[in-house]
């Protein structure tokens, strides 16, 4: 196996492990996958999944099941920043289609794709629980609400810089 979870990632996972009873290491699988994903290019290759399985003493398939179930895990390469645009009812009523259209044109990609420079991956999100600030999107760990094309421009500019 090529990939080894780094010391700092291990320490972070260990901090999560402290929260659960000693025989329930599996509980830390979601946080562990998140940590490993964030530190390794935003997506999880098989070797990452296997390393997490190993680290938590789980059957590999148990980790594959989890990693393929939750939508915040990516099992294919992604861009540096992941843009999740909410298109659910409230955002749709508030014009998320414009937002999606604008982003697709601006980045030159369709939903689900990654820009050529590897900077952005565009994804459709289900309700982000930001309906009061619709239309909304999430980039990496941050929410952006009441979006307009101008606002998106300044957000993207901030990220590129």
């Amino acid at each position: 196996m090529g990939f080894v979870i780094s010391q700092s990632e291990q320490e972070e996972i260990d901090r999560w492990l402290l929260k659960y009873p000693p025989h329930q290491k599996q509980s830390a699988v979601l946080p562990a996958l998140k940590i490993v994903q964030e530190k390794n290019g935003g997506w999880l290759a098989t070797e990452h999944l296997d390393a997490v399985a190993d680290y938590l003493s789980l059957p590999k398939i148990a980790v594959y099941e989890v990693a393929s179930f939750y939508s915040l895990f990516d099992l294919k390469p992604v861009g540096k920043h992941k843009i999740y645009v909410c298109t659910n009812v409230s955002c749709m009523l508030a014009g998320s289609e414009t937002i999606v259209g604008y982003l697709e044109r601006r980045l030159g990609i369709k939903m689900g794709e990654t820009t050529q420079d590897g900077c952005f991956t565009l994804k459709e999100a289900e309700c982000l629980a930001a309906c009061g600030g619709a239309p909304a999107m999430q980039i990496d760990n941050t929410y952006y609400e009441n979006l307009t094309p101008e606002k998106i421009e300044s957000i993207l500019a901030g990220l590129n810089g």
Binding site: P59, I61, A62, Y64, E65, S68, F69, Y70, S71
Partner: peptide
């Protein structure tokens, strides 16, 4: 060895 991976109608049984 076998598991159910993926979610909803995309769920698949297999070794992944």
């Amino acid at each position: 060895e076998l598991g159910a991976t993926g979610r909803g109608e995309h769920m698949e049984i297999g070794t992944f």
